[in-house]
């Protein structure tokens, strides 16, 4: 018994010395490692924004951004991660925005778009189209962003994803005012026909809304180029719901969410003027 106690004591002593010396070395090296990792992060930011001197991580409303500050503590740019729903799943990307709210770079972190078609979104030729855009630019597929051949949905997803992320960054980190949500009140509208357009699943949707006696009485789709049978599902389910509820806050047709949301938004755009 005494023997076991002696052996245990010696082993414990050695372990204690080992742990002590390790914590000493760890104390020295962990600071150096943290310092180096910080420097690597700064170097990465400096490639985007040459004036960066220090970094700060900030989270606002669930969005985290690494903010680069110059020597005087002024924001010269930030890097944030965002996501958008593509054709075949979520696309994760980073967005670098400089202090004036201009896009400096977009980089795809992960995507699962169709190889050879949709996955062209990760190529520099496509991503460089976003560089230099600001919150005032349309950032819309077919306007200032070229649609990739055979990958309309992926292109539109990236364009709207970048646009939305940029708007969120401007509001959360750069003090821009949040845009007012457009609303409408049918009873305050004059009788007549109103038209509006919005983004569908893969095309613009144009609708004509008829108001009679302060009520939405008819919604007609003038133009669209979404997949026909999905769009039909959306049209048949969503339009009666909007007329019934006199509001665009209705359930989407399951299986045709993109087209449904497009119709609701188009009606909103028509009436909220």
């Amino acid at each position: 018994m005494k023997e076991i106690a002696r052996l245990g004591l010696i082993l414990m002593l050695i372990c204690a010395v080992a742990a002590g010396s390790l914590s000493y070395v760890n104390g020295i090296t962990s600071a150096i490692i943290a310092d180096r990792e910080e420097k690597e992060k700064i170097a990465q930011m400096q490639k985007l924004f040459p004036d960066v001197a220090t970094l700060e991580d900030k989270t606002v409303d669930g969005m985290t951004a690494t903010i680069g500050l110059d020597g005087a503590g002024k924001m010269v740019g930030l890097l944030a991660e965002a996501r958008t729903e593509g054709y075949a799943g979520t696309i994760r990307f980073t967005l670098a925005v400089d202090g004036s709210g201009k896009i400096v770079g977009v980089n795809i972190l992960s995507q699962s778009e169709t190889p050879g078609l949709g996955d062209k979104i990760k190529e520099p030729a496509f991503l460089s189209q976003f560089v230099g855009k600001t919150g005032k630019d349309p950032i819309t597929a077919g306007q200032d962003i070229d649609i990739l051949a055979g990958a309309t949905v992926s292109t539109r997803a990236m364009a709207s994803g970048v646009k939305k992320a940029l708007a969120e960054i401007l509001v959360r980190f750069m003090g821009a005012e949040a845009p007012k949500q457009p609303t409408f009140n049918p009873s305050a509208l004059k009788d007549g026909k109103y038209t509006g357009t919005a983004d569908g699943f893969k095309s613009d949707i144009k609708v004509e809304v008829t108001i009679v006696g302060g009520k939405i009485t008819e919604i007609k789709v003038l133009e669209h180029n979404d997949t026909a049978n999905f769009f039909k599902m959306a049209e048949e389910e969503v339009i009666p719901r909007i007329i019934n509820k006199q509001s665009v806050e209705v359930d989407a047709a399951s299986g045709a969410t993109g087209s449904s949301k497009g119709i609701m938004q188009a009606v909103l755009n028509a009436l909220a003027k």
Binding site: I14, A18, S21, L22, V25, N26, I28, T29, S30, I32, I33, R36
Partner: peptide, 15 residues
């Protein structure tokens, strides 16, 4: 004893 030195080498290399 060996593990102690290995961990030290690991930390120093990382640093």
């Amino acid at each position: 004893i060996i593990a102690t030195f290995v961990t030290m080498v690991d930390m120093l290399l990382n640093a």
